[in-house]
Design a protein around this nucleic acid. Structure first.
Length: 761
DNA sequence: TGGGGGCACCTTTTT
DNA sequence: GGTGCCCCCA
């Protein structure tokens, strides 16, 4: 195991400026070039681990030091709050500026929200508009779709939400939807639903995520004077992760850059992994054409990974055609080769991988060094089970989001109702939670009346309880709720928002509802409510808290213990770990069959970029696993090693052929076999195992046994798996006949099979 | 109104 | 295989 030299790891850390421009000394030549090319458009192609953030932050500092701009004249955009936070901290440390003195550093969405709040009236909103989350968005869409008499089962709100997101990502308002686009939903009603939805949002004084950008773009396009205000303001612009921008963001940036033309974008076309969310790799591929005279700087020296890992990743990515091309290199030659292990199934994979982690721990004493990066979250379960079984500390990164939990959203809804009469979505959410006898029928009556009166639900409810339209339990319940709301609003005048929240949850009976709940989750929910109150207390007032919640979906995690990280490949972008475990490198799992079906070669290239991202997270060791059998949605499937495995350069890879599925030529592993009745499998190099009898019964169809050439065939004692009978072992062989006993769950079956002469051996 | 049964779905998800 | 959703029934 080669450790990275201290010199290298030190380079990756920011240094405070020593004098005027001493911070430049910490840069290598291309980094410095990227920092010093101050005027005009600049494209920085920053490969993985080449010091991208360092360039961005140093450039910011340099602009100040050269008196090119003041901190508030620089627009710096990132995609994630985490990236924004890191950049803010590093810039602040570098220039000694307080973090508050950098007002225009943030995510696309937070900066757009800021602009939109200022000019809300230009798009028919009030500046205190609510930002809806996905759940609200879908509930609202469902109402619209139902009202249009569209079959919600066939045309789901989720589907429509996806289409709308897509349109918004492309900068298309309801008026810009082409005939063909609109047709993709409910026989041509898509555009209409979109239009009504936008209308409803306006009435509710609300926007969804996409609107933050789309409305701002619309304002820039329609109001020259407003645009001019910002193009004058922003003398320089810095954009992080440019490969992830969508069309709307691109247009937004382009308009703003019209003033100064000082747009510097940093990105890596090889790390574009959000195409399915509207990111256009094309934006970065096209930059030089879009911004004539742009200076292009390539950062190719990698400070993160050892030579073998970097070489393996670099070779892999060359299989992609749509790329600008970079040649990453490192001073750190050697290190450990990338390991590729073939294993039996998901369980074996978790066992083997966790063994490697324990092995690492025994040498380095740090679980936090280790990360398991999976393609899909369902792969996490096997690992979690193993971690728990062995009592190893781990954390799931990017798991279920705190602010998206049911109880947290309910609590927010109460606060939103108190804050605003107009928030129908929040009102609907809490009107009968906890149960107040206000059932679906009553809510429907309310909605109907609200539409007639053209009033929000809450105001309508006030009127309706005066009449006889709602009776009995519902009327009593509604009256009590309205009285409570009035009372809470009064309290809000004098009570801090966090205390108010506690009081509201108590008095509304919401807390009591969960206390009475005997299900195992209830306790966790109560804890989350407590944490919620704490989170609220960290903000000055309710508005700033709700803004934070809307734009920052994750509760900030404090300093973490020494834990193994378990996450998806997507969540791992921007992170690095000494040891990276990459399980599930099998065709159909990774690359994901679903992605391939949907988007063909484009998707394949994106999957490959994902593989590239995964490998380049590793500093010292990367271990890839693939299984021969994978349970997908409860069905056993025999699977082949991912094509990405084959694309790795053999000289940088160490393959273990312990299962006989994979390995260098001539490596004779034991060769496990898989027998799956009823399916045929004719991939070259794989042999069929024709199973004919189980005791006296014949197994229908052909079964197969798999072993790669060179694996040496079956042997006595070898493990066999059968879909129906589970694990078994070869007990005896006689010529082509193989006797197998199945031991699982009391089944003792004897199978006799015939081994076909393999064509390819 | 709530609960149980049947059924369709199933990737990634910075904001 | 597990979950979430809808519908129907008591």
């Amino acid at each position: 195991m080669t450790n990275l030299s201290p010199k290298i790891s030190e380079l990756a850390r920011p240094r405070p400026p020593m004098g005027d421009t001493n911070y430049l000394d910490a840069l290598n030549a291309p980094q410095r070039e990227a920092v010093e090319a101050l005027d005009g458009p600049v494209l920085v192609l920053a490969g993985a681990g080449t010091g991208k953030t360092r360039v961005l932050t140093t450039r910011f500092a340099h602009l100040l030091a050269m008196s090119k701009a003041r901190p508030w004249e620089i627009l710096s955009v990132t995609f994630t709050n985490k990236a924004a936070r890191e950049m803010r901290n590093r810039v602040a440390a570098l220039v000694g500026e307080s973090a508050e003195g950098i007002p225009w550093l943030g995510t696309f969405h937070s900066i757009s929200a800021k602009v939109l709040r200022k000019h809300a009236e230009l798009v028919g909103l009030k500046s205190n508009f609510t930002i809806l989350d996905t759940d609200d968005q879908i509930r609202l869409l469902k109402q619209v779709i139902l009202a249009e008499n569209i079959d919600v089962k066939r045309w789901t709100p989720r589907h429509m939400a996806g289409l709308i997101d897509n349109w918004k990502n492309r900068g298309l308002g309801p008026d810009k939807i082409s005939q063909s686009d609109g047709w993709s939903f409910a026989n041509g009603k898509g555009a209409k639903v979109y239009e009504i939805y936008q209308q409803r949002l306006k009435t509710l004084n609300a926007v969804d995520f996409g609107d933050l950008l789309l409305h701002t773009l619309g304002i820039f396009l329609k109001h020259e004077d407003v645009l001019a205000e910002y193009t004058r303001k922003f003398k320089y612009m810095l954009v992080d992760e440019y490969q992830d921008t969508n069309v709307c963001q691109y247009l937004w940036l382009r308009l703003l850059a019209r003033g100064s033309n000082n747009l510097c974008v940093v990105g890596d076309d090889d790390q574009s992994i959000y195409g399915w969310r509207g990111a256009e790799v094309d934006n970065i591929l096209r930059f030089e054409k879009d911004f004539p005279g742009a200076k292009v700087v390539r950062l190719e020296q990698n400070y993160r990974s050892t030579g073998h890992i970097l070489a393996a990743a670099s070779k892999l990515i060359t299989a992609n055609e749509d790329r600008l091309g970079k040649t990453l290199w490192t001073d750190e030659d050697g290190g450990e080769k990338v390991k590729v292990f073939g294993v039996w199934d998901g369980e074996a994979e978790a066992i083997a991988a966790v063994e490697e982690i324990e092995n690492w721990y025994s040498k380095h004493n740090a679980y936090a060094d280790c990360a398991v990066l999976v393609r899909a979250s369902r792969q996490m379960r096997a690992f979690e089970e193993r971690f728990i079984q062995l009592g190893l500390p781990y954390r799931v990164v990017g798991g279920p989001r705190f602010f998206e939990r049911l109880e947290v959203r309910d609590a927010h809804a109460y606060m939103r109702v108190i804050a605003s009469d107009a928030d129908d979505l929040a009102f609907e959410r809490i009107v009968n939670t906890p149960k107040r006898g206000i059932g679906a029928t009553s809510v429907q009556k309310l909605q109907q009346a609200a539409r007639q009166l053209d009033l929000p639900l809450l105001s309508t409810a006030r009127q309706l309880i005066q009449t006889d339209e709602i009776t009995g339990k519902a009327r009593t319940g509604l009256r009590a709720l309205l009285t409570d709301i009035d009372h809470w609003r009064q309290m809000a005048e004098t009570t801090k928002h966090a205390e108010l929240a506690e009081l509201v949850l108590d008095e509304s009976g919401y807390t009591a509802m969960w206390q009475a709940d005997k299900s195992p989750q209830a306790e966790g929910r109560l804890e989350n409510l407590k944490e919620l109150v704490q989170a609220m207390a960290e903000f000055d007032d309710l508005e700033s808290y709700l803004e934070h919640v809307a734009l920052v979906s994750e509760r900030e995690t404090g300093p973490s213990d020494d834990q193994i990280s378990l996450m998806t490949l997507h969540a791992a972008k921007g992170l690095e770990f000494p040891l990276v475990i990459l399980p599930g490198w099998e065709e159909s799992v990774f690359p994901s069959q679903m992605a391939l079906d949907e988007n063909g070669n484009r998707a394949l290239e994106e999957e490959r970029r994902l593989a590239y991202v995964g490998l380049t997270r590793a500093r010292q060791q990367a271990i890839i696993y693939f299984a021969a059998n994978r349970q997908i949605y409860g069905r056993w499937q025999a699977v082949l090693p991912s094509r990405f495995v084959d694309e790795l350069p053999p000289e940088h890879v160490e393959a273990k052929a312990e299962t006989g599925y994979y390995g260098q030529q001539g490596n004779a592993g034991g060769g496990m076999a898989d027998i799956v009745s009823g399916s045929s499998y004719d991939s070259p190099g794989w042999r069929r195992f024709q199973a004919s009898k189980t005791r006296n019964k014949t197994i229908e169809g052909s079964a197969k046994a798999v072993a790669k050439p060179g694996a040496g065939g079956f042997c006595i004692g070898e493990r066999i798996f059968h879909q129906k009978f589970g694990y078994g072992r070869i007990k005896a062989m006689d010529g082509d006949k193989v006797e197998v006993t199945f031991e699982k769950a009391g089944i003792k079956k004897l199978m006799v099979g015939f081994l076909e002469k393999p064509e390819n051996l």
